[in-house]
Computed example of a mutant assay.
Amino acid sequence: MVALFSARRFHGVIAFTAFALLSVAFYMEYEMGLEPCPLCMLQRIFFFLIGVASLISALYHTVRSRIICSWSVVVFAVLGAALAIRHLYLQNLPAEELPACLPGLSYMVEVFPWQEIMQAMIMGTGECGDVLWTFLGLSIPGWTLVAFIGMALVNAFIALRRA
């Protein structure tokens, strides 16, 4: 019998939450017409990785897999939180201090080496400074930061738990 507050259930909830957040991101992109910036795309990748690691832990539950998956989620969540913090920093810069906007990602993939593409995506571009949507005073990267911090804390607790 699975306990009410088991690591397996928490990982199931975290996997569901990560995939639900991705669904919301795709809804905002395709239905609301909000174009994701490079930092948004990277944050989506980290939510996907968190969802996969949590799903693996929820389905294949051994103590070893729980610990490995929990620490993996902590690492992915910390990296995602760092991107969200960078994104919030860019959103709070004055317009004249924003980095230059870059060409579209599809063009960059065709023309630039992957190292330059990754550097540009991680550093963000001028379009990362646009606040396109807010809820309760927080923009999208603010809410992703909250989600990443919550997921990291829950998984650190799961990984450090003795039982």
Rank of each mutant, 00 (worst) to 15 (best):
A7W: 09
R162C: 01
R64N: 12
R8W: 02
R66Y: 00
E29W: 08
P38S: 05
H11C: 14
M1W: 07
P103Y: 00
A152V: 15
N155C: 15
G150R: 12
Q119Y: 09
V75T: 12
M151K: 07
S106K: 12
D130H: 11
N92S: 08
A82L: 14
A25C: 07
F135Y: 11
W133P: 01
L90G: 04
T125G: 13
H11Q: 09
L22P: 11
R161W: 15
E127W: 03
M28R: 12
C69M: 15
Q119S: 14
A95H: 04
R162I: 13
L98C: 03
E35Q: 04
V73H: 03
R64K: 13
F48W: 10
I117R: 01
L105P: 01
G12Q: 03
A84L: 04
A25K: 04
F157E: 10
A152M: 09
P36Q: 01
P99G: 04
R162Y: 06
Y27C: 06
Y30H: 13
I85N: 00
S54C: 11
H11S: 09
D130N: 12
F46W: 06
L153C: 14
I45M: 13
I14R: 12
E35G: 02
I14E: 10
S23H: 03
P103Q: 03
V73L: 08
M121W: 02
F19Y: 12
